[in-house]
């Protein structure tokens, strides 16, 4: 699936892209599927198994799409976090006195 990008450079990963949109659509579907699928499966109703099975596939697909991007976003941010934290404390006007 070439239209789903799985290798990210930090600068590109910072942008909001198609992969984010896909996660935003798949994620609520997964929750709805979990709610209905688990309840019906526990009552041994066959449609529950189907819904639960499809939901698990949706969850796997969602992670497959978004995980590489989240990793890239995280790694990029980690490098800057220290500097950002210093900024935050300046805004808070906190100084270590002990």
């Amino acid at each position: 699936m070439r239209w789903i990008r799985r290798k990210w450079k930090a600068a590109d990963a910072r942008e909001w892209t198609r992969e984010d949109a896909m996660a935003i659509v798949l994620s609520p579907l997964a929750y709805i599927g979990l709610a209905v699928g688990v309840a019906l499966s526990m009552l041994l109703i066959p449609s529950g198994y189907w819904i639960l099975g499809i939901t698990i596939l949706v969850i796997l697909l969602m992670h497959w799409i978004i995980d590489p991007k989240l990793k890239a976003v995280s790694e990029d941010f980690e490098k800057k976090q220290k500097q950002f934290l210093e900024n935050l404390e300046k805004i808070e006007r906190w100084e270590e006195s002990e």
Binding site: S27, Y31, L34, A35, M42, D67, L70, S74, E78
Partner: peptide, 29 residues
């Protein structure tokens, strides 16, 4: 610890809440 960990903590924590509600729903029936 990271942005990725934050995203997954919220997603999976809530997924368990939703599964729990469904288990309860069956018991209530």
């Amino acid at each position: 610890r990271t942005v990725r960990d934050a995203s997954y903590s919220i997603w999976w924590g809530t997924a368990i809440v939703i599964v729990r509600n469904s288990i309860w729903a069956v018991a209530v029936l």
